[in-house]
């Protein structure tokens, strides 16, 4: 095979990986602040994807244009979920939080199955088959747009946590729970906001990913796992780590699909997870030892 093929596949894997990274960023933010492992993460993404598809088929509005409203819907959803169901569980044992979210995920997947049926759905944009020629490289336009949007949203999120007062307050909750309570922060509300932000991230990622892959309700658990793998690889709780992990997984999957068989590609992601858990359990960018 000519070398350009490897380069093409690598670039397209990295672009998909940026979207993965944004999805994982949501999980990482939720875990980093609330210390809750969102086992319904991929399911929330499929909700975002189905909203995008419903809007597209009804009004022919592009998912990338509708990304902000979709993220807003998911934000409200995440906020409500944290405020109603999860907040009472923050001091419960780990396995009981886990099971709560497994239950939520089960309802979401099968709720989508009832609403939309088991068949794969996608959007047919006008630029679906366009591509850019950059020297010897041929890059799909959809992947460039999706990857670019993921970078923009991630940058906005970094800026929010770095510079805004609200973002700083949320980071304060993450750094020192008791301290945050002492200085008078409404921790429960900030937790709900954080879960909302995490949900918005994954909703936006869903709106981008719907351009790249077909969606079925069964996609949820697979992407929850993928988000876990990315976040653990990059370092649970580290925002740059989530993006880096996303790129790494996107690249690995693309190369494995080219060199072996596309259906075996997830084995390499799992293999990577096992290696990271064993030899660097805090992840590539993680600081805290677990």
């Amino acid at each position: 095979m000519p070398a350009e093929i490897y380069l093409n596949v690598a670039v397209s894997g990295i672009l998909t990986g940026l979207v993965y990274g944004l999805m994982a960023l949501g999980l990482s933010v939720i875990f980093g602040v609330i210390r809750i492992v969102n086992f319904a993460h991929g399911e929330m993404m499929t909700i975002g994807m189905y909203i995008a598809i419903a809007i597209f088929s009804a009004f022919k509005l592009d998912p990338l244009v509708m990304m902000v409203p979709i993220a807003a819907v998911l934000f409200v959803f995440g906020y409500a979920l944290q405020a109603s169901l999860i907040n009472p569980f923050i001091n419960r044992p780990e396995h009981s939080q886990f099971i709560l979210l497994v239950a939520v995920a089960l309802v979401m997947v099968n709720g989508l199955l009832i609403l939309f049926g088991p068949d794969a759905k996608n959007v047919q944009t006008t630029y679906a088959f366009d591509s850019f020629l950059i020297g010897p490289l041929i890059v799909d336009a959809t992947k460039v747009y999706a990857g670019g949007a993921a970078v923009l949203v991630s940058a906005a999120l970094f800026a929010f946590f770095r510079f805004s007062h609200l973002g700083q307050a949320i980071r304060a909750c993450a750094d020192n729970y008791v301290g945050a309570l002492v200085v008078g922060l409404d921790v429960r509300r900030l937790y709900a906001l954080t879960f909302g932000i995490g949900a918005a991230c994954v909703g936006a990622a869903g709106a981008m990913l719907v351009l790249i892959i077909d969606v079925t309700p069964a996609l949820g658990p697979a992407y929850t796992l993928l988000a876990f793998i990315i976040v653990i690889t990059g370092g649970l709780g580290s925002m740059p780590g989530a993006l880096l992990g996303g790129i790494l997984i996107g690249f690995t999957e693309a190369m494995a699909g080219l060199l072996f068989s596309p259906s075996a590609k997830s084995m390499f992601a799992f293999g990577l997870l096992v290696l990271v858990l064993l030899f660097r359990p805090q992840g590539i960018m993680g600081k805290r030892a677990i």
Partner: peptide, 25 residues
């Protein structure tokens, strides 16, 4: 390697999924 709690749960899922893809082939 002291993989505990949630990480342990995810490790068990990963192995089951690994087997699923493996048996597919």
């Amino acid at each position: 390697f002291r993989v505990g709690g949630v990480y342990f749960a995810i490790l068990t899922i990963a192995f089951a999924e690994f087997a699923r893809v493996g048996f597919d082939h």
